[in-house]
Write a protein that binds this DNA or RNA. Sequence first.
DNA 1: CGCCAGGGAGTGGTCGGACGAGTCGGGGCG
DNA 2: CGCCCCGACTCGTCCGACCACTCCCTGGCG
Lengths: 232, 232
Amino acid sequence: MTEAREFRGSDAAAAELVVNVLRGQIERGQLRPGDRLPPERELAQRIGVSRPSVRAGLRSLAAMGVVQTRHGSGTYIADTPQLDSRPLGLLAALHGFTTEQMFEARRVLEVGVAGLAAERASAEQIAAMAEEVTGMFASVDDPEAFLRHDIRFHRTIAMASGNPILASLVEMVSSLYFEHRRRNLPPGRDLREIAATHRAIYHAVRAHDVERARREMSVHLPRPDGSPVALR
Amino acid sequence: MTEAREFRGSDAAAAELVVNVLRGQIERGQLRPGDRLPPERELAQRIGVSRPSVRAGLRSLAAMGVVQTRHGSGTYIADTPQLDSRPLGLLAALHGFTTEQMFEARRVLEVGVAGLAAERASAEQIAAMAEEVTGMFASVDDPEAFLRHDIRFHRTIAMASGNPILASLVEMVSSLYFEHRRRNLPPGRDLREIAATHRAIYHAVRAHDVERARREMSVHLPRPDGSPVALR
DNA sequence: CGCCAGGGAGTGGTCGGACGAGTCGGGGCG
DNA sequence: CGCCCCGACTCGTCCGACCACTCCCTGGCG
């Protein structure tokens, strides 16, 4: 029962040991998304370190989005394969990323996933896109609601690409943009026009026209046209 | 001097408070890359939480790659704007990302940055690419050295895109691939052929031919052609 | 019999203190 | 003058305790 697993090569940091043990269990399939981890006190005993060390390791994993803890309930393996966007936000502040760079990164990613989505989108996913597009047209007078549909539309596209890695990256970068836009409501352009461009993207995906989907997504996304200042 | 900064809205988690305080100082420019943070005990007193809480917050930031601690020396703001790739590796193991998906993500990113690099690469960056290409030709009999030049070539391309966000994402995804390849040396294809494709990419970038750079990068990157197994 | 309020056990969150381990610089010794 | 050792400083780990929160289960009430 004991998984002390001494030696551990040359690196014997207690907190790191915790991460490695759990990582091993994850990679071996013994820990699956949604699973609940043993209590910290029990983990400490099993691994052979103190509870503070266990907590340190769990906190690292939590910061990476691998686990999430619920006070009073337990620690669980994350069920949404979502990379946390806070790191990017912090790095943005640290190294002075500009809005242009953020837009550009989003462009590269979204255009790519739009093409893949046109190849592979399922009927259900296409229906979900249509739902969000109609939602956008229905809320052209409510910027807040409009933004929600906007976010969900792009998220659906990312899902439909069939590539969870790209979907995570898109989510990470886009959340930066949407947070930025939430602070600056309403946007300059007419919401009706924006909804129309989304409709065009949707049509291209529905027609499984890869090139058109890429092109429509490309014209939709804000060009780095002299955006005002640094990010945030 | 005290920055207790009570209230803090509705969320009063001690460890989170530490992250927010430091984040604020980073965003306000009071903390810059390479700077050394105050000792944990002093931070604890200044923020008004216990040292374990400070340690918890710092560990979160460390896991995100924002700070790094050196035993016996201190905690420093990270100087390399690099997103850590370990989170992606863990998520890959967790959610069963396949090699195809990894290749595909890398394709989207690398093709994008290749196009940007063709637009913007400076003379020095182009020279650096040439250096790596010649290095690859010179080490076609040494897979290990060849791989090193390969990595550096792609890193130079990413840098030359002028977009640190994209460069970080490329680095994050590519490091997964290179780690995978390091375990599986040597690759199936002839190294000489690979070096030639890199040379073609280099020529396109040097000529500032965006479309050709994208095309050459596209043909260079391994197509998702029935790669064997899960990403491990 | 069914519903709901209460309590208790289990869990993570925080705290203070203590000691070990690593780093670094300065002062003493050769 | 140069080397080495030592001590101050810092992070790393550990312990024990208590608090806050969640969840389930029990018992009483309708």
